[in-house]
Design a protein around this nucleic acid. Structure first.
Lengths: 281, 281
DNA sequence: TGAATTACGTAAGTTTATTACAAAAAGGAC
DNA sequence: GTCCTTTTTGTAATAAACTTACGTAATTCA
């Protein structure tokens, strides 16, 4: 799902726009806010072209007609991402860098909202809740995510461990039982080491859950897959959004679980909070 | 700028909505995303009312007809500030839980956009870039953040280490020099252990940077403070958004640094990428 | 119970967007 | 340059969507 396009593409850099298309684009770009409140007729007149020309441009840009174009444009403007999800440039000032990063995060967060199926979350939490113990496995950028998950799930009173070390992971995977859950975290879903470990865990009978893009090798070796997709795939910035997405998914799982466990958890949390007070200055 | 109206008002709390209005509202609220792609006819049918009823509701809500309503709704949805920052309830279904979490993330991300001063980012990156080595310190929920930062900054060719262990942190802090940067990560800014370590590091002459709420004890002991604030402060969910914010700030720092370092970094990244290929299946 | 008010739907009317087709312009080949 | 092909653009007809006007049903309050 491409999240940022219209205003960029209207500039004509990525698409081959005809003379008339550019006339329309110029009008829209001059005041996008105004454009979304205009009818196709007004816009066409203002740009000095015919209505079908405007309509054709909309379709060329991937929209389903003019109203759809207005809708998408409105969204793009409101989320402030007209700022871009083009890439960073060395000339960007700090404020711009901040905005670009934050808006790319927002976009990814938004997109998993749509990509995540409630069913998969439910399946995953069902497995986790009834487990004797839970293991999180992640390597590289996903290592910290696994550790974060460990920290988060620790409050539930079920034994939780995260492993980021290949050998340790392997050891654990071969020892898992039908009552253990193993969560494998990987953005690419293609890291051999983690795929092999997931396969091993599944063979051991464990309840394997993949936090990864569905359709990848890792996904194939997991009982349940929680789909983690991002739009962007830039050299420099790929790992950024992927972690945030993984964390968000972990949050969702943990929250769902907390809600289902109910009172028990709250008691744990209160106890933890009380004991943490003394560590504060 | 009032950012959230339509969806709130549709709930009927602020406005007096008629029976039919509520039927329409229910349909829209159930899936706003779908609503904006529907014609007034479909929506009316689905809600079991007539088209003018829908139209009248739109006007009642301050819109200039149905298309205008769709437009405004689309903007509201895309900026993510819809859906509640109310708390979770045990009765929430999975879709609702997902939405609540994601929107609370979006809100926090949005708010640091405003709270973060470009100046502080620049000061911090200036310190980091000219450092002989960089240390990240975090405990508890901030531990994984520190590790993540380590992973991220490793690409810059400067020695980077993260420590999550109190004793190890203390050791390092007492050994730091004027040419080393030490980044302390803490949401509360009041965890004694980390505050003490920051104090120690500053005494050692190190370039101390705090990723924490400004005004806290930790902030006082750091040369540069990158302000990390969140709005919410719920028992159950505090740690969630704070980590995301910390990560976002780390991303910003890393990106800013990458941009300033330029070619060098790209070379490193290419090399890393190439070498990672062989680990993929 | 009855009058007044509000809510609602039907149907007609108007605006808006789309499609089909034809004319014009641009680009190539000879 | 001329002819042919391809692309671009506009005109006109059509269809879809939205709005308005009006009349009926429901509700409220006396």
């Amino acid at each position: 799902m491409n999240t940022t396009q219209l205003l960029d593409r209207l500039s004509g850099k990525t698409d081959k726009l005809s003379k008339s298309d550019l006339k329309v684009a110029a009008v829209v770009l001059r005041d996008p806010q105004a454009a979304i409140h205009q009818s196709i007729a007004k816009l066409a007149t203002e740009a000095g072209v015919s209505e079908p020309t405007v309509n054709r441009l909309c379709r060329k840009l991937g929209c389903n007609g003019y109203p759809d174009f207005k809708l998408k444009l409105a969204q793009e403007i409101s989320r402030g991402s007209h700022l871009f999800s083009e890439n960073m440039e060395a000339s960007d000032d700090t404020r711009t860098v901040i905005n670009k990063i934050l808006s790319s995060i927002e976009q990814s967060v938004n997109s998993i909202g749509q990509a995540t199926s409630p069913a998969s979350i439910e399946e995953a939490t069902d497995l986790l809740m009834s487990s004797k113990s839970i293991y999180f496995f992640g390597m590289g950028a996903s290592g910290p995510v696994a550790l974060d998950a460990q920290h988060k799930f620790a409050r539930f009173g079920i034994p939780v461990v995260a492993h980021t070390d290949f050998i340790n992971q392997r050891m654990m995977c071969s020892m898992l039982t039908e009552e253990d859950s193993a969560v494998f975290i990987s953005y690419t879903g293609r890291t051999k080491a983690i795929v092999d470990n997931a396969e091993l865990a599944t063979k051991s009978g464990a309840r394997t859950i993949g936090l990864t893009r569905s359709g990848t090798p890792l996904a194939k070796h997991c009982r349940v897959v929680v789909n983690a997709v991002t739009a962007e795939d830039t050299d420099l910035f790929t790992p950024m959004t992927s972690r945030i997405i993984h964390l968000a998914l972990v949050d969702i799982l943990a929250t769902k679980m907390a809600l289902q466990l109910g009172d028990e958890v709250e008691k744990n949390i209160k106890a933890i909070k009380t004991n943490l007070q003394s560590t504060r200055s």
